[in-house]
Design a protein around this nucleic acid. Structure first.
Lengths: 248, 248
DNA sequence: ATATGACTAATGGTATGACATATAGTAAAA
DNA sequence: TTTTACTATATGTCATACCATTAGTCATAT
C-alpha cells in the first residue's frame, strides 16, 4: 500500500490569506511593488482577489507584522510598502531570548564576534564625520553622567555609531538587534552603577582612540576588555582573540 | 503660546489589537506563558478581553507572523506559544535585500565578518562529532557533484555546520539568516557551474582541515579566500584580515 | 488676509452572526 | 480487528453594518 511513495507531493491548501501574502510578496520581489508604493484600499483589494475584507485584512495584518507594510488610517491612508525596519529583527531576537531558545551570553559573544571585525573595518573606513560622531557620543555620555541622567542607551548609541563607521548596514543592524536583545540580559552587577558607567565611558574612549589611531590590534584588545568587563563572558573573550588577550 | 511645551505627551491610542498583543507578549516575558502552552480558544479569548473575535484574531495573526504563535485548526487545535524560528530573521533580511534597503555585498561582508570569528571559536570548541559532521557534509557534496545533483544547499549546510561547531546558537542563526538573504544575491558567474561547485567543495575541505588542525590562522585565510572567490567582495576581504591576506 | 470651524469623503478599525472546513476522538458497523 | 460514520471543538471565511481617523474643502468670523 506504500508502493507509490514519493510520487505525489502534498497539496498546498493553506489559508487563502497566505496565498494573498504570497502574491503580494511576489510583486515586491519582482519589483512591481516598490518602497513607498501604496496598495489599493482594502475594499478594492478584496474585490481584486475575490475574497472578503476579513480574509484580505488577515493578509495585510501579517505583512504589517513582518514590517513590509505600513498601514495608516484616514483619508489618503492605506497600506504602504516599506523595507522592514531593523526593529523587526531586534524584537525577534528578544523573543528568542525570552522564550529561552537563545542564551543572552551567546548573544554577547556573537556581538563581540561581530564587533571585533567591525573594529577592523572601522579602522580602515572611518571618515572624519564618523570619528566626530563617536567623540560626540562620548562627550554626551560624560555630560549625562555628570548630571546623573546617564543610562544604557548611551552605550548602545556608541556601539551603533562604531558599526556605522564600518560602513556596512548589515553589521549595523546586527549590533542594534543584538543590543536590544542583550539589554535585557541578566548581567550581574559587579560594581555600583555610577562606577560601571564611568568605566564604560572610559572603555568607549579607549576604543575610539584606537580607531582614530588606525590601530586595529588596539581596537580589538579594547573591545575584548570592554566585553570581558561589561558582560558575563569574562575570560571567554579569549576564544575570539587568539592568545593575544590580556586584561591589562 | 508655547510655554507649556514638554509638559504633555501624546496619548497612546493605538489599535485595540495592539493592546492585546502587548498583554500576551507581557505574559510571555513574565513567564506566565511558556513555550508549548496553548492559549484559550478565539471565542474564549474574545470574551476574556471583551472584544470581538475579529479584533482578537488581528492580534493572533500578528503574533503568528512574528513566529510567536503556532496556530492549528481542528479539534485540539488552537494557538500555541513557541520561540520564533530562525526563518523569521532569515525572511526579514531577505525582504530588506529585495527592497534594496540592504546590499547583498554588505551581507556577504557581514557574513565573512561573523564567519572569521566562527572559525576562531570552532578551532577552540569543535568536538569530534562536529568534525565528523563537517567531513560528512563534504563527502555528501562530492557524491552529489558526481551524480550531477549538487546545488547551493550543500554549501549552506557546510557553513551552518561550521557555525554549529562554534557552539553559539546566535552565530548559527546569523549564518543561516545571512545565507538565505545572500543566496538570492547577484553573484556574477566567473566560471561554469560545475567548476565553481568543485572549487567550492575544495575550499570547504581546506577550511575543515584547518579546523581539524586547530590552526586558527589557516582557517581565517581559507575562509577569506573562499569568500573572495565565491562572492563579489574580491580583494575587499583584506579589510577584515589585516594585511595577512593572500589569494594563494 | 487669516484663522477658525463645520462639513465631506475616503480609509482603516470593530462588531455580529452565520456558515465552512479541518481534525482528534469515539462509537458503531463490517 | 479494521473500517466507517459521527460528533465535538477549533480555526477559516463570509456578508453587512457602523465607528473612528484624517486630509481636504469651503464657508464664516475676526
Amino acid at each position: 500500500m506504500t508502493t507509490v511513495e514519493g510520487i505525489f507531493s502534498p497539496v498546498s491548501g493553506g489559508r487563502i490569506s497566505s496565498e494573498i501574502v504570497g502574491q503580494i510578496e511576489a510583486a515586491i520581489a519582482s519589483g512591481s511593488l516598490q518602497q513607498g508604493d501604496r496598495l489599493p484600499s482594502e475594499r478594492e483589494l478584496a474585490e481584486i482577489f475575490g475574497v472578503s475584507r476579513i480574509t484580505l485584512r488577515d493578509a495585510l495584518r501579517t505583512m504589517e507584522a513582518l514590517g513590509l507594510l505600513d498601514i495608516r488610517v484616514g483619508a489618503s491612508g492605506g497600506a504602504f510598502v516599506q523595507a522592514p525596519p531593523s526593529e523587526v529583527v531586534e524584537k525577534t531576537f528578544g523573543h528568542m531570548v525570552r522564550l529561552a531558545s537563545l542564551d543572552p551570553d551567546e548573544i554577547a559573544e556573537a556581538r563581540l564576534a561581530a564587533e571585533l571585525n567591525i573594529g577592523n573595518l572601522a579602522v580602515k573606513r572611518a571618515t572624519p564625520e564618523d570619528i566626530e560622531a563617536l567623540s560626540n557620543a562620548i562627550d554626551m555620555g560624560r555630560k549625562a553622567l555628570a548630571e546623573g541622567s546617564y543610562d544604557t542607551s548611551y552605550s548602545r548609541e556608541f556601539h551603533v555609531l562604531l558599526a556605522r563607521a564600518a560602513h556596512n548596514r548589515a553589521l549595523e543592524i546586527l549590533v542594534q538587534s543584538f543590543g536590544g536583545a542583550f539589554s535585557m540580559a541578566a548581567v550581574r552587577a559587579r560594581e555600583p552603577a555610577d562606577v560601571a558607567h564611568r568605566r564604560s565611558l572610559d572603555e568607549h574612549e579607549r576604543i575610539a582612540k584606537a580607531v582614530i589611531a588606525r590601530d586595529a590590534e588596539a581596537v580589538g584588545r579594547a573591545l575584548a576588555d570592554h566585553f570581558a568587563r561589561s558582560t558575563n563572558l569574562g575570560s571567554r573573550v579569549e576564544d575570539l582573540l587568539g592568545s593575544a588577550y590580556s586584561e591589562d
